[in-house]
Simulated assay, not measured.
Amino acid sequence: MCSCQKPSNATSQTVPTPSQSGLHFRVDDMTCGHCADTIKKAIETTVPGTTVNADPASKLVSVTGPADFAALRAIVTAAGYTPSASPVAA
């Protein structure tokens, strides 16, 4: 996690549903471009063939490609962030 933010303890139990445009989920403790770049790089280097758009303004992460939410959640958590599992409409 970037030093511009304190860790969040909030989690959600709802699993996002994949859509034709990929998986979409929130990362409430993504607060700046550095956070977004860290999340993007962590996912894209760990899961080949994915494309990630991480937007700190909306706190949304969109992943297209061979994405499994359980794996994505583990990757984002290992990078120091707290992904919520709230579904987001594409």
Rank of each mutant, 00 (worst) to 15 (best):
C2P: 00
C2M: 01
C2Y: 00
S3Y: 03
C4H: 13
Q5H: 07
K6I: 00
P7S: 11
P7D: 05
P7F: 08
N9H: 06
T11L: 04
T11I: 06
T11S: 13
S12N: 11
V15G: 00
P16I: 01
P16D: 04
P16N: 08
T17Y: 01
P18A: 03
S19C: 05
F25R: 01
D28W: 02
D28Q: 13
D29Q: 03
D29K: 09
T31C: 05
H34P: 01
C35S: 13
A36V: 12
T38R: 14
I39L: 08
A42E: 04
T46R: 10
V47E: 00
V47H: 09
G49R: 09
G49L: 14
G49N: 12
G49C: 05
T51V: 14
A54D: 03
D55R: 10
P56K: 09
P56I: 00
A57P: 00
K59M: 06
V61H: 09
S62H: 08
V63K: 04
V63G: 05
P66V: 05
F69N: 07
L72K: 00
R73I: 00
R73G: 10
V76Y: 00
T77R: 08
T77P: 07
T77Y: 06
A78I: 02
A78Q: 14
A79E: 03
G80E: 06
P83C: 06
S84N: 15
P87I: 07
A89R: 15
A89P: 05
A90K: 11
